[in-house]
């Protein structure tokens, strides 16, 4: 196994709430420098997977292994940003310097240059001193992308970054994501717009609690696979049987997760 080429490895990862799994026995590597769309119906565990990778939710079983020394940037679906807090755009974007400067490090001229450059890149030049409570939804999202830029992360997780974002802004943000991909950063994006996925994302993970399929987008985005994901029952059942084993060899049905595209992906992972 070419483990050195994995930015992220799921091994039998189960994440959930209470006793109910939201992500069930997910296994596989996310290649370094890959750009992956995570798709699936509401409640299929996409956001939970993101939180699991960040470490906000601890696994019920299995593990996520991130390659050592990687910086991670995470843009949540529902941010907890306090828009009424008296901060300017540059303060918000400046939080992205935390991994570099920490609690006490001084910002130098290079940092200020980076901030200016990041705001430029997302089309917010001149917005430095605007209070954040005067930004529109799209402008705020651009600012948050600028913060991700400033973080200079190796592994970037974006949870539904295009929600309620207009076409122009979406196109700009997609261009940024492709730029990151070009710089060999690993990017995982939760997306609902399947057209966007087909057009811009080389790899796709179809999630419906378990992995329905995972591999090259053109192989994965087939009508039969997507139909299977749509049939997914998102309800929790209090009378559902307990999941017996926690090892990958456990005796319950993993057929879906071991479908052909996954095998193909694993094959590519080995050959890469």
């Amino acid at each position: 196994m070419a483990m050195t080429d994995a930015s992220l490895t799921f091994s039998d990862l189960t994440l959930g709430y209470g006793s109910h799994p939201a992500v069930h026995h997910l296994s596989g590597p996310v290649g370094r420098g890959s750009l992956t769309a995570v798709v699936g119906p509401n409640g299929s565990g996409k956001s939970t997977l993101m939180k699991g990778i960040v470490g906000i939710i601890k696994p019920m079983a299995g593990a996520v292994k991130t390659a050592p020394g990687q910086r991670l940037a995470y843009l949540p679906q529902q941010s907890e940003i306090d828009r009424s807090f008296p901060a300017r755009v540059v303060d918000l974007v400046g939080l992205g310097l935390w991994p570099k400067r920490g609690l006490l490090g001084r910002y130098d001229s290079q940092d200020r240059e980076d901030l200016r450059h990041a705001l430029d890149a997302v089309g917010l030049a001149g917005f430095e001193h605007r209070p954040i409570d005067t930004l529109s939804g799209g402008q705020l999202q651009r600012a948050l992308f600028a913060r991700v830029l400033v973080q200079k992360a190796d592994l970037i997780l974006l949870d539904e970054p295009f929600n309620a974002i207009d076409a122009k802004t979406t196109a700009d943000l997609i261009a940024l994501i492709r730029h990151w991909h070009g710089e060999r950063r690993t990017v995982l994006v939760v997306v609902h717009d399947l057209e966007l996925v087909r057009e811009h994302f080389p790899e796709t993970l179809v999630l419906a609690r378990r992995a329905i399929a995972w591999g090259r987008t053109d192989e994965v985005m087939r009508p039969d696979i997507l139909a299977r994901a749509r049939r997914f029952d998102e309800a929790w059942h209090d009378d559902a049987p307990w999941c017996a084993g926690h090892g990958p060899q456990a005796g319950h049905d993993h057929a879906g997760a071991r479908s052909a595209p996954v095998a193909a992906a694993a094959e590519r992972g080995r050959s890469a």
């Binding site: 960040v54 906000i56 991670l72 940037a73 995470y74 949540p76 941010s79 907890e80 940003i81 306090d82 807090f85 901060a87 303060d91 918000l92 939080l95 935390w98 991994p99 913060r147 973080q151």
Partner: peptide
């Protein structure tokens, strides 16, 4: 300003 962000870094 953004507690969730702080948790992520």
């Amino acid at each position: 300003l953004d507690p969730l962000f702080l948790r992520s870094v």
